[in-house]
Every structure is written in structure tokens, then in C-alpha cells.
Simulated scan of single mutants.
Amino acid sequence: MNAYLPELRRQGLLARPAWDLFDRMFEDFGLGLAKDKEWVPSLDVAENEGEYVVTAEIPGLAKEDIDISLSEGLLTIKGEKKQEKKEETDTYHVVERSYGSFSRSLRVPNGVDLGGVKAETADGVLKIVLPKTEEEKTRKIEIT
């Protein structure tokens, strides 16, 4: 159904003012659906038997531009994507790349080994590995 929305709007079959009101509601709550909002990296969170893995897309950022902290069960990733210096002779017709500072926070489950947390970056992807403590690792429970 979502694929048909632009075509329905184009044909005038879907009232645009109602959608504008809907979009503004999300903007008021700061949920970031508007296209002119600041840049925020996308995250994936995965879990396997021994660890949690957080992966973030951070193209164009050096590791020096990223700050990662884990405090009271809250993993916070902060950084800044700096805009390249524009030459005075260049005339830009379209600028689609986003710049600015960002901050993303995730609640981390209990049972993470804080001493074993590792982070690495390669090819514009940040990978944070949060190992589970021995107590949190999955154990098979036999039914008697």
C-alpha cells in the first residue's frame, strides 16, 4: 500500500493536508521524519549466544570524531560529521549530504561484561561488541 501513496497523491486521490498534519505531529515530538532534520547514523542491534553487537553507519567520520560511552546501562555514541571546506570558485547546484553533530543512546541489557567491550571502525561502519557475562549466556534447561 505504501508504494501507491505517491501515485495516489499525484492523482489527487489522497488528501495532502491530512498527511501534512500527520507529518507535523511527528516533527513536534522530534521523531525525525522531516527531511531537513539533522544527520543521525542508522543502527543495527544483534544478539548471539555470547554477545550483543551494535553496528552503526558512519560514512566520512574518522575514529577521532566519535565518542562512545557506557554508563548505568546506557550506551551512547556521539560524533560530528564536519562539512568539507567549500572553495569560493565552486558553484553548488545540489547539496544532499548531511553534516552536523549527533548523539544516539541505547539501553543495554543487564549482564554485559563492561571490561570486554570493544569498538572498531572500517569502511564507514562502526561495530561495538558487548560481551555477555558468564551468568547471562544462554544455557539449555532440561525438562524433568
Rank of each mutant, 00 (worst) to 15 (best):
Met1Ser: 10
Asn2Thr: 09
Tyr4Asn: 14
Pro6Phe: 08
Pro6Tyr: 05
Leu8Gly: 00
Arg9His: 00
Arg9Pro: 00
Gln11Cys: 03
Gly12Phe: 10
Leu13Phe: 06
Leu13Gln: 08
Leu14Trp: 04
Ala15Lys: 02
Ala15Tyr: 03
Arg16Glu: 09
Ala18Lys: 03
Ala18Gly: 07
Trp19Asp: 08
Leu21Ala: 08
Leu21Val: 04
Leu21Thr: 06
Phe22Asp: 07
Phe22Asn: 08
Met25Thr: 07
Phe26Asp: 01
Asp28Ser: 09
Gly30Thr: 00
Leu31His: 06
Gly32Asp: 04
Ala34His: 02
Lys37Pro: 00
Lys37Phe: 02
Glu38Ser: 07
Val40Asn: 07
Pro41Asn: 07
Pro41Arg: 06
Asp44Glu: 14
Val45Glu: 07
Val45Lys: 11
Ala46His: 06
Ala46Leu: 15
Ala46Met: 14
Ala46Tyr: 12
Glu47Trp: 01
Asn48Ile: 06
Asn48Gly: 10
Glu49Asp: 14
Gly50Val: 13
Gly50Cys: 08
Glu51Phe: 09
Glu51Met: 14
Val54Arg: 04
Glu57Val: 12
Glu57Thr: 14
Ile58Gly: 00
Leu61Phe: 06
Leu61His: 03
Asp65Met: 01
Ile66Thr: 03
Asp67Arg: 15
Ile68His: 13
Ser69Gly: 14
Glu72Ala: 15
Leu74Ala: 06
Leu74Gly: 00
Leu74Ser: 03
Thr76Ala: 12
Thr76Tyr: 04
Lys78Ile: 04
Glu80Trp: 01
Glu80Leu: 03
Gln83Gly: 09
Gln83Glu: 15
Glu87Val: 10
Glu88Pro: 11
Thr89Lys: 14
Asp90His: 10
Asp90Cys: 01
Thr91Glu: 13
Thr91Asn: 10
Thr91His: 14
His93Ser: 11
His93Glu: 13
Val95Thr: 13
Ser98Gln: 14
Ser98Lys: 15
Ser98Val: 04
Tyr99Asn: 12
Gly100Ser: 06
Ser103Pro: 02
Ser105Asn: 03
Ser105Pro: 02
Ser105Glu: 06
Leu106Asp: 02
Arg107Phe: 07
Val108Ser: 05
Pro109Trp: 07
Pro109Ala: 05
Pro109Ile: 05
Pro109Tyr: 04
Pro109His: 08
Asn110Thr: 03
Gly111Ile: 05
Gly111Val: 08
Gly111Ala: 07
Asp113Met: 04
Asp113Leu: 09
Asp113Ala: 14
Leu114Asp: 11
Leu114Asn: 09
Gly115Glu: 11
Glu120Met: 02
Gly124Val: 08
Gly124Tyr: 11
Leu126Asp: 05
Val129Trp: 05
Leu130Lys: 13
Leu130Gly: 13
Lys132Phe: 09
Lys132Ser: 05
Thr133Trp: 02
Glu134His: 09
Glu135Gln: 13
Glu135Phe: 10
Glu136Asn: 09
Lys137Arg: 15
Thr138Cys: 01
Thr144Ile: 01
Thr144Asn: 03
Thr144Gln: 02
